[in-house]
């Protein structure tokens, strides 16, 4: 960041965040012997009623938990994985009773759909993709985008599920000739898709036609940026990035999230906000999630921190609970709750 940009970065004073803005709603433990890797909230239909359920993923098992009246959770389905470990849950929006998972060792090798057969409620898994998968994201309108391969041999595919999660349709997007790191949908523009690449470009596609519309080179200060969320407003694109590989700087400490504004017509961009840790907090970005204008990150210190991107500062800090570091953080898609997980399978649900 240049000196001019320093002036618009809002570093909060120590007392400007409120730890009380996160209230514990419920918690449960997934008694798996393997390491907990992801958590997500999904709508699931049982006996004709749609319920907000929690999906937990350990390396060798994925479980679906349904809510009971007493703020407790009951495990209702499990899918087992004996050959390739689970890396992440990939929620697909607007389709009920289906969740996707990415499997692999460090890099994604398979994407599978997890579902239940309607007659006997038995758990099933279907292999959707296999290969050298670099990025995957579930989109609105029952779509799943993935990129397979690198550089010139890359294929970018959009798979559309039927309403019942069954038969599907596939479309190719024009590859950008540079390896894709992450995808992000543009909120409110269901035909626009963004991707970040290994050479610090943000690429923009038209999902309806498969066209590659623009490449936007962003600041080289941070490599391997992850795009979490994008919004289009008044002819500009607002993009929320995180920088897991960023080095600490004296001026800002470790940057956690950055809000960029892009003019898609001219491919010019500008940093408008850099979210850093409040005074007294240490650590680097481990993983994070953004919902609307609220961003949450797990730090290497084992703490979770939350930023309001409209206010421009950190609003809550959640230190490790019961002496155990946090390792997962996700916003719920079914309500305004924050899901926080620990490696041993403990899941805590907070109201923000």
């Amino acid at each position: 960041y240049s000196t001019e940009q320093n002036e618009i970065v809002d570093l909060p004073a120590c007392d400007s965040w409120n730890p009380g803005s996160l209230q514990l709603v419920s918690k449960f433990k997934n008694p798996s012997s393997s390491c907990s890797v992801d958590v997500s909230a999904v709508w699931w239909e049982r006996a004709g009623a749609k319920e907000p359920c929690i999906i937990t993923a350990c390396e060798d098992v994925v479980s679906l938990w349904k809510p009971l009246d007493t703020l407790q959770w009951e495990k209702v389905h499990t899918w087992h994985f004996t050959e390739v470990p689970v890396l992440q849950i990939v929620p697909v929006h607007d389709v009920y009773n289906l969740i996707c998972v990415a499997l692999g060792n460090l890099e994604i090798r398979e994407i599978r759909a997890l579902l239940c057969s309607s007659g006997d409620e038995n758990e099933k898994q279907v292999l959707l993709k296999s290969g050298n998968i670099k990025a995957v994201l579930g989109l609105t309108k029952r779509r799943l985008v993935s990129s397979i391969g690198t550089f010139c041999s890359q294929q970018v595919q959009v798979l559309t599920f039927a309403e019942d999660g069954g038969s599907k349709d596939e479309q190719l997007l024009m590859p950008p000739d540079e390896t894709i790191l992450t995808f992000a949908e543009v909120q409110g523009m269901q035909d626009a898709l963004l991707g970040t690449t290994t050479v610090n470009n943000i690429v923009i596609w038209n999902l309806r036609t498969g066209q590659l519309l623009k490449k936007v080179h962003i600041d080289d200060s941070y490599q391997a940026s992850i795009c979490h969320r994008a919004y289009s407003e008044m002819g500009l694109l607002f993009v929320v990035l995180s920088h897991p590989c960023a080095k600490e700087s004296q001026a800002f400490g470790s940057p956690m999230f950055q809000l960029l504004v892009i003019n898609p017509k001219t491919a010019q961009s500008l940093g408008v906000l850099l979210c850093c840790l409040p005074e007294g907090q240490a650590g680097r970005f481990l993983e994070g999630d953004v919902k609307d204008h609220i961003a949450a990150a797990v730090l290497t210190s084992g703490t979770i921190a939350v930023w309001d991107l409209l206010l421009g500062h950190c609003t809550a800090v959640l230190p490790p609970v019961s002496g155990q570091n946090w390792s997962l953080v996700k916003w719920s898609d079914t309500d305004s709750h924050l899901l926080a997980g620990q490696k041993d399978g403990n899941i805590f649900i907070y109201r923000y």
């Binding site: 240049s2 001019e4 940009q5 618009i8 024009m174 523009m189 035909d191 626009a192 923009i204 038209n206 036609t209 066209q211 590659l212 519309l213 623009k214 289009s232 008044m234 002819g235 500009l236 504004v261 892009i262 003019n263 898609p264 017509k265 001219t266 010019q268 961009s269 500008l270």
Partner: peptide
């Protein structure tokens, strides 16, 4: 820095880029 540095802005950027980009 201001949005003036970003050049001319178009509210219909998505449609315009789609009509300009190769099919």
């Amino acid at each position: 820095c201001s949005t003036a540095d970003l050049g001319p802005i178009s509210l219909n950027w998505f449609e315009e880029l789609s009509s300009e980009a190769p099919p």
